[in-house]
Design a protein around this nucleic acid. Structure first.
Length: 425
RNA sequence: GGAGAGAUGGGUGAGUGGCUGAAACCAGCAGUUUGCUAAACUGCCGUACCUCUAAAGGGUACCGGGGGUUCGAAUCCCCCUCUCUCCGCCA
């Protein structure tokens, strides 16, 4: 979440940012928070003064008791009793205000970076670049949901039987392709300096709040209520939370991690015409890269991550484009997001396969993730992450774009991982 | 799941009602000494908020989390969480 001092001292900047996001009633909402903050501070000052007096009295009483001056001690006790009841009331008010402020701040999204275009929806996203050419498909080319049946590599009906819609079963060459992609992505990331981690795929509530899934996206995560644990929607959650409540030494930066996990998304209310086949699932595999960086270097890191992800797409020989998301389409916690989309030729659509974001201090503030700086107070770090990559839509594009009458040709980069070069019947 | 023990600063670990935001040691930082390194010595060495300020300073809170007793709680009481040991169950 945003820091209160930023709200206080750079109000105009915050308001301009919220406007870019089309955040409703920004001025009133922020003013309400500033009022809460003002009131909290004045009450805290008052409370602390009273507590200070009570502490001094307690010491005095101790001294009097020791020297046997009981009557005088009793007189002071009476005074403390009154202080106590006043501080109690004040303390309750302060706590109430702090809570209200916290709740209010949870509802304020991150401030977009200056390069983020204004806009309301996906249509206003800015195409930064396009790479590769659109493949010419043979006569009678099929969308991937037909191909997976023909080659018997992914089975949605079986998934429906054992779990439900959106939980496909990968079989044979399909399963092998999944495993090849995961290994390829992990190996590439390690070559690029990311340290692999294998985190839990269920997380507690504190982790959900740490990276901002809670309370904003409460309904989007599967919730194991018996233990109050959440199935992760992305490896970002456990990996970034590895560093919750940490103060990192300057020399340890940047921290770079890669992790493969299944991801679980309820996708409540988002099913429609464009979600056939692998386009949208409740469970899917993803390799995620995470960086924790010093504030002055985070945008450099974001560009590196973007380049890295583009390199993967190039090795997979997929045509792709890079979008800079507009204020209205960007995630709640992000300051700048690039989406990478591949062209899935039989559907004739761009499919989002990666989203790489700089959260600046928004997550770090919740996480209390800071760096130790020389001679100064600990300073909030910047967190970044990106998919590298999400598998299902990559698979969709690979199948659709590379179909031939003889089978589906797979890119060279994967051959050694697959043990075959083409999916055949 | 049952029984018991425990949770203190970066680490080890003292502390059972006031002089303890917290000993000591280790690690770390700065300095003295030194041909270099090492050793020795000296000093510094938690976080958040409030207040004040040019800077310094001052205040409050925090000893797993929450509540209570008390003029006063790391210390006493209650609840919760977690860890360890033993038993049971299981991979």
């Amino acid at each position: 979440m945003l820091q209160i001092p930023v709200l206080r001292e750079q109000t105009d900047l915050v308001l301009a940012g919220l406007q870019k996001r089309n955040f409703p009633n920004a001025a009133q909402e922020i003013q309400a928070l500033l009022d809460l903050d003002q009131k909290r501070r004045s009450l805290q000052t008052e409370r602390d003064e009273l507590l200070g007096r009570a502490n001094a009295l307690a010491k005095e009483i101790g001294g009097l008791m020791k020297s046997g001056q009981k009557d005088q001690a009793e007189a002071l006790k009476a005074e403390t009793a009154e202080l106590k009841s006043r501080t109690k009331t004040l303390d309750e008010e302060v706590q109430h205000l702090e809570h209200a402020l916290q709740q209010g701040l949870y509802k304020v999204p991150n401030i977009p970076h200056s390069s983020v275009p204004a806009g309301r929806s996906a249509e206003d996203n800015e195409v930064v670049l396009e790479h590769g050419s659109i493949p010419q498909l043979p006569e009678g080319a099929q969308p991937h949901w037909e191909l997976i049946k023909q080659y018997d590599i992914i089975d949605f009906e079986l998934g429906i039987k054992i779990t439900g819609a959106g939980f496909p079963v990968y079989k044979g060459q399909g399963a092998r392709l999944q495993r090849a992609l995961i290994n390829f992505f992990l190996d590439e990331a390690m070559k690029a300096g990311y340290t692999e981690v294998q985190p839990p795929i269920v997380v507690n509530e504190a982790s959900g709040y740490g990276t901002g899934q809670l309370p904003d996206k409460e309904g989007q995560m599967y919730h194991a209520t018996a233990d109050n644990l959440y199935l992760i929607p992305t490896a970002e959650v456990p990996i970034t939370n590895l560093y919750r409540d940490e103060i990192i030494a300057e020399g340890k930066l940047p921290i770079k991690h890669v992790g493969y996990t299944p991801c679980f998304r309820r996708e409540a209310g988002s099913w429609g015409a464009d979600v056939r086949g692998l386009n949208r699932l409740h469970q899917f595999d993803k390799v995620e890269i995470v960086q924790i960086q010093a504030p002055e270097k985070s945008y450099e890191a974001l560009e590196d991550m973007s380049q890295y992800i583009q390199g993967l797409l190039q090795k997979l020989e997929l045509p792709y484009r890079v979008l800079r998301l507009c204020g209205g389409d960007m995630g709640f916690t992000s300051a700048l997001t690039y989406d990478m989309e591949v062209f899935s030729a039989a559907q004739g659509r761009w499919l989002e396969v990666s989203s790489v974001s700089n959260f600046e201090t928004y997550q770090a503030n919740r996480l209390k993730l800071r760096q130790r700086t020389e001679g100064g107070k600990p300073q909030l770090l910047h967190t970044l992450n990106g998919s590298a990559l999400a598998l299902p839509r990559i698979v969709a594009a690979l199948l659709e774009n590379n179909q031939t009458p003889d089978g589906i040709k797979l890119p060279k980069a994967l051959h050694s991982y697959l043990g075959f070069e083409m999916i055949t019947k």
